[in-house]
């Protein structure tokens, strides 16, 4: 039944044009970054490596598909949550707005099944969006710029990864990004269960993310103590896959924190939805 419901929910989501905003945004933005990199990438790379080149002779192509995909992930990872929110905030509240809860809930399916199938749909959307990001950035990146070693500038060091040592890192980083986006999805989904209009959960989720990011960015003592409790900090830890050696503690910790968020938010959503009076 869940599979059946999931198929239905999936169809519903992908029959709505708003679902394609995310794919369209990624499909336009990423090639724009590619174009920018094509025109200016060498300059910015030169800028980053300026100090290095004083003492070292740098040979080879650092302006490659991997580096650009890495930059794109850095730049876009912050914006993807907004695209996720558009769809996830609508999952439950959209049915309320449209009045279609009445069609669904009067059927012999449990509310738990509805929540589960809708969450799975939100998750699939998040995963597909990241997958789309991965495909667009890596495929176009590699076609236009080729492959090569990846230069990663971390705060404490510069790491150059061998060509053969990169792809798996991207796979895991995208995988981690999916996990992070699933937290965003769960949050929007949670808000979506509270209200009857999709605008509310979309805006609230965006506000939460923006506030968390701002709190993280303001380097003040009081805010610093909040940081470990802000999920937005963990979402960006896909970067840990571009470290050598991998900081497994940090990665596992992040996965657990994000997973915990998903479980808590989903449980809350399920409980709220279970008890909700459908008045729309």
């Amino acid at each position: 039944m869940i599979y059946n419901l999931f198929k239905i929910e999936f169809l519903k989501v992908f029959k709505k044009w708003r679902t394609y905003i995310g794919f369209l945004a990624v499909g336009v933005l990423v090639p724009l970054v590619h174009l920018a990199m094509y025109l200016e990438g060498q300059n910015s790379l030169d800028f980053i490596t300026r100090d290095l080149r004083q003492s070292f002779l740098l040979v080879g192509n650092l302006l490659n598909g991997y580096w650009i995909s890495y930059i794109i992930l850095n730049v876009i990872a912050v914006h993807i949550p907004f695209l996720i929110t558009l769809v996830a905030g609508d999952l439950l509240a959209g049915e309320a707005t449209a009045g279609t809860y009445r069609l669904l809930i009067t059927r012999p399916i449990s509310r738990m099944q509805i929540v589960t199938s809708k969450f799975l749909t939100g998750f699939s959307y998040s995963a597909l969006l990241i997958l789309w990001l991965a495909i667009v950035s890596l495929v176009i990146g590699i076609l236009v710029f080729g492959t090569g070693e990846l230069l990663v500038v971390r705060s404490e060091m510069i790491i150059i990864f061998d060509k053969s040592d990169i792809f798996w890192r991207f796979l895991l980083a995208y995988g981690f990004a999916i996990l992070g986006m699933t937290v965003v999805c769960s949050l929007a989904f949670f808000f979506s269960s509270l209200v009857e209009n999709a605008i509310g959960p979309i805006i609230t989720t965006m506000a939460v993310i923006i506030i968390f990011i701002i709190i993280s960015a303001i380097d003040v003592e009081i805010f610093r103590s909040f940081k470990p409790y802000l999920f937005t900090n963990y979402i960006l830890n896909w970067k840990e896959f571009f470290n050598d050696p991998l900081d497994m503690n940090k990665i596992i910790n992040s996965v657990l924190v994000l997973g915990g968020h998903i479980i808590v938010l989903l449980t809350a959503t399920a409980i709220i939805f279970q008890k909700k009076d459908i008045l729309s």
């Binding site: 239905i8 009045g99 012999p108």
Partner: peptide, 30 residues
Amino acid sequence: LTRVGAIVEKPDFYNYLSAYKNLKILSKIS
């Protein structure tokens, strides 16, 4: 609910789907 059919208040459907598709979806969860 397997043995009950209902219209509750005004008839709302998935507006972005055809009548057939709406019924098809609902039939699968009936």
